[in-house]
Design a protein around this nucleic acid. Sequence first.
DNA 1: GCGCATTCAATTGCGAACAATTAAATGTGA
DNA 2: TCACATTTAATTGTTCGCAATTGAATGCGC
Lengths: 153, 153
Amino acid sequence: MVRKQIAGDQPLRLDNQICFAVYSAAHAFNRVYKPLLDRLGLTYPQYLVMLVLWERDDVPLKDIGERLFLDSGTLTPLLKRLEAAQLVKRTRSTEDERQVLISLTPQGHALKEKARAVPQSILAASDCSVSELVAIKNEIVALRDRLNAVIGE
Amino acid sequence: MVRKQIAGDQPLRLDNQICFAVYSAAHAFNRVYKPLLDRLGLTYPQYLVMLVLWERDDVPLKDIGERLFLDSGTLTPLLKRLEAAQLVKRTRSTEDERQVLISLTPQGHALKEKARAVPQSILAASDCSVSELVAIKNEIVALRDRLNAVIGE
DNA sequence: GCGCATTCAATTGCGAACAATTAAATGTGA
DNA sequence: TCACATTTAATTGTTCGCAATTGAATGCGC
């Protein structure tokens, strides 16, 4: 009976939860990033926004949100802080005044060069080959996309 | 020159970041869990604490923190909310009055039965076999532990 | 053109998450 | 025993993250 009880509890055991693996890995990444991003004066979510802008400038807030899976309730105050740090500018689109376009300031552009050191440090911290990381990343992205598909239903 | 520029930007591309894969997967999990946990009256971090307590009752706050990689700044208010919901009790240890012991109330115990439906729903949402999930989970945990090892240095 | 739905950002409120500090209890060494 | 370090929770302040609501701009049907 004891063994049956234990067997029945398996799905509820913390160590069997993939969600906890992902949750705790995200926090571990955040802690590794923290000292690196402190030098850039960025938090991790702010860093993600900057990654988007370094790829393409002058982007609607909405597009950043779709890319990062974040809504205006998160992005509006975050972008105001980036604006206060003089890394981005926020302007209403003239064609569609509902949209807020986010563009990089010269300082925002310049920060990209300092940021190039970050991925290298993360790679070193992960103590893992690039190809292994890419493989895990692709599996996690595939899982994430399946989960997001269920949410959209 | 254009191609060289692009190649040099690869490490900074959002889609190449494993951290973003993990970060966005954690949020996707959270969104899938939300409607399930709403029925239990729990948030996702509260659910994690309950998982720990369902495995072993009467645990010091510190132990819960080590298990979940969370500190007292996060757990103290969270546990007070669980106490207000009458799911746990907080008592100072008599042997060592620095420690706060967390124990389940009868309602806290009872909630375990309602929670058994959760892992099944998550499995279905992940649209993936158990063995595949276990494999990914183990890889993520291994990565997390390597990251945490670097932090501890 | 007018009424109405839709889109988009901003706001409010709540619950994490963590750094830094504080305070109390305990352990340790002289 | 007494001074001092360590351990443990709690507190404070800042930043996410999201649900729900609001308000302005736009698009659509008639």
